[in-house]
């Protein structure tokens, strides 16, 4: 039928146009595909720099080719091995803490749905998701103001309550850096992280709860036997994604919170790459680390995806 009405639809619908539809559509898309090519694929060319001894300001053709020297340096040069080990330890520690605390949004969601006062529930939800929408610079600014040694409210109150003799510079110490970073992450992300679980809970069949109530099940039994199993699929997907991102814990948070004192424990991979490449001008070595990190990330992603296929029968990407 259609073909009878539009006999030339495979060529061109409009008279006077010589480009077939399929290429016309591609032409419309092409400027955007070029942008993707330039900003997402072209950077792969930058990997070449890890095989040279590159210094900013010189063209690549005039820099000596060094082969795998930088990759070997990671394992053979004791100082560099030590540095990379330290940075890896920080990265893995913070990712592990992130995974361990990923149950908190689940608990948050379960407890919030136990609250029956609607306006209260709404208010809590709106206000606790707010920190998610401010930048890490602002989080740092807030930390800076509140924990400042001589004008911050935290020190003022701690002294007034008699817990401290005098002001402590909380941000410039290295005793609990991993924990502090995890807590800031929780402050920023807990309410937001719970939203998905709250929605998942509301989609659980209410009849299950009614039936359980008839059988005399208490609050915690219902949570344990109905709510928690209902949330498992969502939790599992997010868990797999965090495994895929295990060495990808971002840089902004650690960049803003870093200082000379906490540097040993705060430097995660991306931050280390920035510090050696952009500040230390060891471009090629930083590129080598960058490149290894990208490759490991991809391997982890495939691993998580395979795991998902086996367990859920569905891929995550």
């Amino acid at each position: 039928m259609k073909a009878a009405i539009r006999p030339q639809s495979s060529m061109s619908r409009r008279s006077g146009s010589l480009i077939p539809d399929k290429f016309r559509l591609f032409l419309f898309a092409s400027p955007f595909l070029v942008l993707i090519l330039l900003f997402s694929y072209f950077p792969l060319y930058g990997w070449l720099y890890s095989f040279y001894n590159y210094r900013p300001g010189f063209p690549l053709s005039e820099t000596p080719f060094v082969g795998l020297q930088w990759f070997k340096a990671i394992f053979s040069n004791p100082t560099q091995t030590q540095e990379v080990m330290r940075v890896m330890r920080n990265t893995l520690a913070m990712s592990t803490l992130g995974i361990l605390t990923s149950v908190f949004p689940v608990i948050f969601a379960i407890m919030l749905t136990e609250i029956r006062t609607t306006w209260y529930k709404k208010t809590v939800q709106v206000l606790t998701t707010l920190p998610n929408f401010i930048s890490w610079v602002l989080v740092y600014s807030i930390a800076f103001m509140m924990f400042s040694v001589d004008s911050g409210v935290v020190n003022k109150w701690m002294i007034a309550l008699g817990f401290q003799e005098m002001g402590i510079n909380y941000l410039a110490q290295d005793d609990h850096t991993w924990l502090a970073m995890t807590l800031w992450g929780l402050w920023k992300g807990l309410g937001w992280g719970a939203i998905m679980y709250i929605a998942a809970i509301s989609s659980i069949d209410q009849e299950q709860y009614d039936a359980a109530k008839v059988d005399g099940a208490g609050r915690f039994r219902m949570i344990w036997h109905i709510t928690v199993p209902g949330l498992m699929p969502t939790y599992f997907v997010l868990l797999l994604l965090s495994i895929a991102n295990f060495i990808n814990n971002g840089m902004e948070q650690f960049f803003v919170f870093q200082n000379a004192i906490n540097k040993d424990h705060i430097e995660v991979l991306d931050l280390y790459v920035y510090n050696t490449g952009m500040l230390g001008f060891n471009f090629s070595f930083a590129t080598a680390i960058s490149m290894l990190k990208s490759i490991i990330s991809i391997v982890l992603l495939f691993f998580a995806n395979q795991l998902s296929k086996i367990v859920r029968g569905e891929s995550i990407i």
């Binding site: 950077p43 790459v273 952009m278 680390i289 960058s290």
Partner: peptide, 10 residues
Amino acid sequence: NAGIIPWYII
């Protein structure tokens, strides 16, 4: 992604 330094170079 290719990594931040390769990205910066490009």
